[in-house]
Simulated scan of single mutants.
Amino acid sequence: MSEPGPRPTSSGPGRVLVAVYAIFALSATARALVQIVGRFSEAPLAYVLSLAAGVVYILATIGLAGRRPWHRRLAWAAVAFELVGVLVVGTLTVFDAGDFPDDTVWSVYGRGYGFIPLVLPFIGLWWLRRTGRPG
């Protein structure tokens, strides 16, 4: 008898997590594109970081929603990168706000988004670990 594999990350409560990531993917990417097209010269670093965050959220959504083994690896990489990104950008915007004349998704640890960008990767990593065990 073969041992059961990991549970799908998009099942049960994971559906809510996928939905939240999808909303952030859409909102962060759309906001960044509007900012880049309309006023890139005002805060190029902030707008490029917002676009990078949007791409990370897209990749995390794809990874969490998928059911193939590579989807899980993608989700792990994207959510881990997200955590590092929000911590690094959050810290930089607290201590050196001059380089960020406009907010990014991860500015001050996601303050403009109710700190969800700070909490979300912890929940994502916990969910990936929890569903990674045979169920």
Rank of each mutant, 00 (worst) to 15 (best):
W76E: 13
V89I: 14
I116E: 02
F100P: 04
L120V: 00
V105F: 12
T104A: 08
G90L: 05
A53I: 08
G114W: 06
Y109L: 05
F115T: 06
D103V: 11
D96P: 00
T93Y: 02
V108Y: 14
G63F: 04
F95G: 14
Y113G: 05
A97T: 13
P69E: 02
W127N: 02
T91N: 11
G98Y: 07
R67Y: 03
G110W: 02
T61R: 06
Y47F: 14
R67H: 13
F95E: 14
R68W: 05
Y113K: 07
V55F: 09
F122Y: 10
V84Q: 00
A65R: 11
L45T: 13
R67I: 10
A77W: 07
G98H: 12
F81N: 09
D96C: 08
A53S: 15
L87I: 11
G85H: 15
F100H: 03
A80I: 12
D96L: 11
P101I: 01
G114R: 11
A46R: 06
V84I: 10
R68I: 12
V55S: 07
G66W: 03
I58P: 00
A75R: 01
S50I: 07
W127T: 01
L120G: 04
A77V: 15
P69A: 06
G114T: 06
A77G: 10
W70E: 15
G124Q: 10
A80C: 07
V119I: 15
I62D: 04
G90K: 08
V89K: 00
F100D: 09
L118Y: 01
I62F: 10
D103C: 04
A80H: 07
G63V: 12
V94P: 00
D103F: 03
A46S: 15
T93N: 00
V79S: 01
S107I: 07
P121D: 08
R72K: 08
V105P: 10
V94A: 13
R111F: 08
W126N: 02
G63E: 12
D96S: 15
D102G: 05
F81K: 03
V89T: 07
W76K: 00
L51Y: 07
T91H: 11
I116P: 02
G90D: 10
I123V: 15
A52Y: 07
A80Y: 03
F100G: 09
G90T: 05
P117F: 01
Y113F: 14
Y113W: 13
I123E: 00
F81E: 03
D103L: 02
F100R: 10
V119Q: 09
A65G: 11
G112Y: 01
G66S: 11
W106C: 03
R68D: 13
F122E: 11
L64Y: 05
V89D: 02
A46D: 10
L49E: 12
G98I: 04
A65D: 09
T61M: 05
L83T: 08
P117R: 09
T91G: 11
G110A: 04
